[in-house]
């Protein structure tokens, strides 16, 4: 309530509007949400860097099994700590307006745990483990599931999904953009 004046100049807001999928109003709203995570710190410096643990308190991220991965992918320092601009980037990619291609690119990064630009068996295993979180698939089921995924998606039979193959699968699932989103 205290801040009568916006912490941003008109030019900065214009920049944000041009570079993200948000309007100026939505940018300000996003900042409010960001500020709510650490009112003291952000009130002092609007682009303060918040530790990953703080960012993960954002309701949608808290319940998301990939919350920490999402933070790491969008963090400009790559350690999961996010500034407001990183946060804005994140919300923009997860917004409804962001096109499928942009979402797919980031989804691939989120799932690529080892960062080798391929979704290998190890990556897929981690993805599945996180999705089934409280329980764990037994080895047999896991093996079978991995086999199904690779049978369906791995067109060149190299035992891993490249970005092209991943995109191909995403193209087929019409619901992807609807599920890959976070409401601001």
């Amino acid at each position: 309530m205290g801040a009568g004046k916006s912490q941003f100049t008109e030019e900065e807001l214009q920049d944000y509007q041009d570079l993200t999928y948000f309007t100026k109003k939505e940018v300000l709203y996003a900042h409010q949400k960001f500020k709510a995570l650490a009112p003291e710190k952000v009130g002092h410096n609007r682009n303060a860097k918040l530790p990953m643990s703080k960012i993960l308190q954002y309701p949608e991220l808290r319940v998301n099994p990939f919350g920490d991965r999402i933070c790491k992918v969008f963090s400009s320092s790559q350690d999961g700590d996010c500034t407001f601009e990183d946060f804005l980037d994140m919300m923009s990619v997860f917004s409804d307006a962001a096109p499928k291609a942009v979402k797919a690119e980031h989804a691939f990064r989120i799932f690529d745990f080892d960062g080798d630009d391929m979704l290998g068996v190890g990556d897929l295993r981690q993805v599945i483990d996180r999705l089934t979180a409280p329980q764990r698939l037994n080895d047999n089921d896991m093996q079978q599931l991995l086999q199904y995924i690779l049978d369906e998606a791995d067109l060149d039979d190299d035992g891993a999904l490249s970005f092209a193959e991943f995109e191909h699968i995403i193209e087929k699932s019409s619901d992807f953009s609807k599920s890959f989103r976070i409401r601001l």
């Binding site: 920049d15 041009d18 570079l19 601009e85 990183d86 804005l88 942009v102 990064r109």
Partner: peptide, 16 residues
């Protein structure tokens, strides 16, 4: 084009 670029805001702003 800039918006769809999978880069962080800092890079995008500088490019812009």
């Amino acid at each position: 084009t800039l918006r769809a670029m999978p880069q962080c805001l800092t890079v995008k702003r500088s490019v812009k």
